[in-house]
Each structure stands twice: as structure tokens, then as C-alpha cells.
Nucleic acid binder design. Structure first.
Lengths: 355, 355
DNA sequence: TCGATTTATGATAACGTTTCCAAAGATAGC
DNA sequence: GCTATCTTTGGAAACGTTATCATAAATCGA
């Protein structure tokens, strides 16, 4: 850093030094089989000597691509989101792409800006999770999208490829399991209905009750944004309510953090006093206070699928039909679920009454 | 996606449609004060009508910059790393930059490749955490760096700006606290000595003993890479040893995950049977089994500082002196530390013997 | 060895901007 | 109304590549 950085050699410098035309240098790099062996060697030597590497800007300009993919995400410090990024990156790098990452913090303005900036010669495609599906700015940008794109876990009434999780089915399975254990007062804290995972999880939750002909405990459904604070507030409210739940589902890994804080505060023992189910594996769900029951999705596959869809779209062009891929979940039992005490009590009471 | 995307309007299209020269359109966008009001209005209307936006590639090529910063990191799904990214991104975006993210997984080849690819017209600067300081490929690339760069938490014998944490001081403080509680058998699992945080943490750990004139428990120091598995293996080994530690320091947040798994397996109660100190706040350290004592660093400040250094370097050029900024840590007491049982027992035994 | 073919190379025009310079237009002073 | 000055514009040359096309060189068959 003390020495002044000399400016990089251009293709013209190489051509001059090797005594060939720029075209030959270009071919040496991009189509060596069309260059005579002797020339090839000489030019390659010169390239090495001058430390020449083609300028990416000039290349993209001429080739009309950028070898860059935009990745727009809500919160990269959420390890689940990061997993998606990593999975997509591996596949995309293999094909020569680098990734541009924008962290929007769920902010509609930033989302709109990110889409906007990426439009004009910055990326060849976009993988994104848009949190403000109904925000005009975002929608407008999406509508006039000039770049192949894939939506992650979002469903927008526009012709955009998407890959998402079958949150509803996963949630229904978990809820049904709790019902099977005897729980009726089951609470859920999850995202708001304005984003797909929130909507779907609540739908799956309700479905489980309906299919069994039971009444849905509407008073125990809380759907406000992601974030640990929502989790804490909503879980606290539920646990302190007049008729508190005997089981709690945290539909979101940050919500789990808040929910566990609330459970800790109420000094409830898992699973003796409260059964807990969570979505997505995290360090916390694996360890506290022992593995929790969890609705697992394969984020690696999701990231890879998104990359795949995008690559196909880039290759196939706009005329290809829109694809929407739905990935399944698995329910993994931990040590956080048990039959409800209350139900045992009630059951005993009923028996007594009958006797 | 059903309709074919029409190709974007160029500055020439706008010029033709507005009946002016391309120069005037360019000035309308970049230096409106030099354009007559009437012309300005007409050109702006045309720009809006055609949906023109300058092509980023052509701009960068002409302006000789990219408004892009490269961010090379070990593991973006580590929330601490992600925090650095987010902090840096906020400051950089304000100045018009977007970020290119490469996740290297600590792989030397990928690190070298990432640095290499970013060299030629892809980014205006790089913020990076290089894990293979001594790998020739990486060093070579770093040595011939053509782009302003800042190292995060790494110290390389090259003239590169850097910002790092005073890991040694933080660790010394925490270790000293445990010693003060009466612990002598203190174990530590952290990174290897080949990366700065590993070296420094071990140094601080030893320092704490030395300053008190105590012998360093060398047999309880474990420094192998990051990653939960190392944490589990090393912590297990320590806890199952012939003379196990009464306190354990996890020097790395992923190491903590593994260490806690080991502690859970040994059925040790925190802090009754084992005191625990960890580095960096995470969801896990905050909740399990109650807040853990933690050596905290301000990652937000670190990310911001890196961005600041980089911006100054980009503006100031290579002739500016190299800066190395060291940030302090804070030790936050949780509920995971207590005097050692053994020491009480030993103490009692000694008293008995004396009597 | 000579034309017919194939292969390798050079010259040049893009790609879409910005920026310089000169020319044209507007404005002001008298 | 005319020159001198200041603004506003147009034209054209970069920026560093790739790709097309024509030409030059090498190869081949007879």
C-alpha cells in the first residue's frame, strides 16, 4: 500500500508487447484453439509477464452480461437466510457468477431501491425475498422487471418464478401431532398474514383442527412480523392469558428466541408444563433445553433450486412458462412435547365424575 | 415473464427522441445545472417516457469505478460475520456502493480465487477476513493487490489497513475474573493459533495466570479451528480428562455450540458444577441456560470502522499511511459463573488437615 | 510447384457512457 | 445594433473489450 499501484495492463498493451493484434490476444484468452501454437505461447507469456487480466467492465459491456446475480434478502444475520445464500452461491459460482447481496431489513424502500439499482446492467438475474408484497413501490418495480428473477418463499400475483416451502402442510402435521397428544389449547406465534409463510402456517394450523372436527383456538393465534421482540410479546401475552395454552408453536426462528425468553420468564418447564414446537433447526432449538420438536425444511435444497430456476430462466428467456416449486417439510420430534397436564387432570376429573 | 422483455433504452434513444445530443442527455442526468431549464424539462420527460436509466457497465467503464465493494468472509451464516456485513453495508450504501459477497468457508482456494476475481474491474475495494494467512496463493494475491482493502480481525505482515478486536485484553479480563472466583483449572477451547483471534485469545488467557504469578494450565488449552464439532470434541476431551476444569471458556460462538453439547452430555450443571464464559453474544449464549458470561465486542462498530477505513483509502489513494485500528471488548457477567466446588472441597480438606 | 482450401491473423466497428473542445446561442454593455 | 462575454449545446474521442469480416499465411493434393 506504500507503493503506488500501477494501472493494470490492457489488451492493447499485451498486443503491442507480443507483436500481435488485440484480436489475437482476445482469442488467446477466449478461444485458444483458434490460435497457432507458437503465437499462443508467445501471447500467453506476455500476458503472464504483464499480469494482464481482462477488465470485467469492458467484458460485460461487450458481452451484454455481468456474470453477477443479485440476492435480496430480509436479514442476512438470520442463519436460515444465510443458508439460502450459501447454497445458491455454490451452484452459481460453479457457473461463473458472483453474488451481489442486499440486506433490506424488511424495509420497503430499500427493497424497491435494491430492485431498481439492479435493473440496469448490474446483474444478470435476481433471487429475492420481498417482504412488502403489497407495497406499491415494490410491486411497480417487480412488474417492470427487466431481469430474470426468482422469488424465495413469496408468492406474488405476477409472472415470476418462485420456490417456496409447503409451510401449511408442515404446520398441519405438527399441530396434528400436538392434538394427538391431547392438546387442545395450542398457541402459535408466527409472521403476519401479509407474507406467505405467515399466511400458510396459520392456515395449516387451523386446518389441523378442522380436519379433526375440532374448534380452532382463534384466541391463541398471533401473527405479527418476525423478530424476537414480537415472539416475546406475543408468547408472553398467550402464556399470561386467562386460559393459557398447554402447547406453543413458534413459527419462525427469531420468534422462538423471544418465545423462549417468555417461557423462561414464566418459569415454565418444557415439556412438563408446556410443549414446544418450532420451525427450522437452529443452534438454540437443538440445545435448549434439549432438542426441541421442529418443522424442518431443506434450505440447502431451496437455495439450490432457486439457483437452478434462475439459471434456466437466464438461458431460456422470458418465453419459458413460469415455474412455481413447492418443497416439503419434515417434522422432527425432539424432547419438547408431552401430553398436557391439564388434559390429564381433566381426564381424571371426568373419570371421577363418571365413577 | 410471459411477454418478452424489450431491450432497455439507451442514452442515444433518449437523445434522438428529445432532439438533442447524447451529451445533453448525459448532462441532464449528471449535471442538470449546466442545462437550460426548457431543455432539461424536455429531456427529463423523454427519459421518464422511455424509462431510461444509464447502463451501469458503460458508466463504470468510462468513470473507471464500479461503485461496488467486495466482501470476503468465512461463513456468512455465522450471525457475527453477518453483523459485520450489515454494518458495513449501511455505511457503504449511503455512499452509493453495493456489496459483492463471497463466502469462502475458510477454504484457501476460494479465498485466493475471490481476491483474484475481484481485482480487475469488479470492485472498487475489498473488506475481507482471510483465514489462510500463510497460504501462498492467498499471500501472493494479497501482495499484488490492485484494489484498496481492509482486513477484518486479521493481521498480515503486509501493508494493508486493518481493524481488529483486542481479543487478548478481553480474554485476560474474563480469565482473571474466573481466577478471582477461585478457579485454577480453567479450560479454553478456541481457534487455532494460525489466525489472529485464536493466537490472541490464548495469549490473553495465559497472561491472566502469569500476571498473578500462577502457573498456566497448558493442558487445558485447546486451539483448533472454528466450528461446533471442534468445540464438542475439545470440550468433551477436557471434561472427561483426569483432572477436569472447573471453568470453561468457549472462545468462538460456534465452539460454544459444541461445548454446550459436550456439557449437556456430561450432565454438568452451569454454574454449580462448571462455570462457563463465552465470546460474543448470540441467541444461545443469551438464553442457555440463562444468560452466560460473555466477552462482548461491538461488531457494528467494527463493520462501520472497516467501511470508513476503506472509503478513506479509496479517496486517499495508496500513499496514505497504513492504519491498524484495535477495538476494545467488554466483559458482561451472566449467571454462568460461580466459585469452584472443588476449590471449596480442597479448601475444606486443607483446613481439616491443618486442624 | 501451383492453385485450391483451410487456418490464422489484423483491422475495425460496435457496446453505452462521459468528457473534452469547439461552435453556436443567448445575454449584456455600450 | 454591434461586439464581448457567458451559457448552452453538439460532435467526437475515449474507456477496454469482443466479434465480424476480409486478407494473409499455412496446408494440402495433384
Amino acid at each position: 500500500m506504500t507503493a503506488a499501484r500501477q494501472k493494470p495492463a490492457t489488451i492493447r498493451d499485451v498486443a503491442r508487447a507480443a507483436g500481435v493484434s488485440v484480436g489475437t490476444v482476445s482469442r488467446t484468452v477466449n478461444a485458444p484453439e483458434t490460435v497457432r501454437a507458437a503465437t499462443l505461447e508467445r501471447v500467453r507469456a506476455t500476458i503472464a509477464a504483464l499480469g494482464f487480466r481482462p477488465d470485467a467492465r469492458a467484458q460485460s459491456m461487450r458481452r451484454r452480461n455481468t456474470l453477477t446475480i443479485g440476492f435480496i434478502i430480509n436479514d442476512i444475520s438470520n442463519p436460515l437466510h444465510a443458508m439460502l445464500f450459501k447454497a445458491a452461491e455454490i451452484d452459481l459460482r460453479e457457473r461463473g457468477y458472483s453474488l451481489h447481496l442486499v440486506n433490506t431489513a424488511g424495509n420497503a424502500k430499500r427493497e424497491a431501491e435494491a430492485i431498481e439499482t439492479m435493473q440496469h446492467g448490474r446483474v444478470d438475474g435476481i433471487i429475492m425475498t420481498i417482504n412488502n408484497e403489497q407495497d406499491r413501490r415494490c410491486l411497480d418495480r417487480l412488474q417492470s422487471l427487466r431481469v430474470p428473477s426468482v422469488l424465495l418463499d413469496r408468492e406474488i400475483k405476477l409472472d415470476i418464478d418462485a420456490v417456496f416451502t409447503d409451510h401449511a402442510a408442515g404446520m398441519e402435521q405438527a399441530t396434528d401431532y400436538l392434538i394427538g397428544l391431547g392438546h387442545r389449547r395450542i398457541g402459535i406465534v408466527t409472521f403476519g398474514p401479509e407474507i406467505l409463510p405467515g399466511r400458510e402456517r396459520i392456515r395449516g394450523f387451523e386446518q389441523a383442527f378442522l380436519r379433526r372436527g375440532l374448534e380452532v383456538p382463534h384466541d391463541l393465534i398471533r401473527g405479527h412480523g418476525p423478530g424476537a421482540d414480537f415472539g416475546f410479546r406475543d408468547a408472553s401475552a398467550l402464556l399470561q392469558g386467562p386460559d393459557p395454552p398447554t402447547a406453543l408453536i413458534a413459527g419462525g426462528n427469531q420468534l422462538l428466541v423471544g418465545a423462549l425468553r417468555a417461557i423462561q420468564q414464566e418459569r415454565l418447564d418444557i415439556p412438563a408444563q408446556l410443549s414446544v414446537v418450532t420451525c427450522d433447526r437452529t443452534d438454540l432449538s437443538a440445545l435448549y433445553p434439549g432438542p426441541l420438536a421442529v418443522i424442518v425444511r431443506d434450505l440447502d435444497e431451496m437455495g439450490r433450486t432457486a439457483a437452478q430456476l434462475l439459471l434456466e430462466r437466464i438461458a431460456g428467456g422470458a418465453s419459458m412458462p413460469v415455474r412455481r416449486i413447492r418443497l416439503p417439510t419434515t417434522f422432527v420430534l425432539g424432547r419438547s412435547c408431552a401430553p398436557p397436564r391439564a388434559s390429564v387432570a381433566t381426564h381424571a376429573a371426568e373419570l371421577t365424575r363418571l365413577a
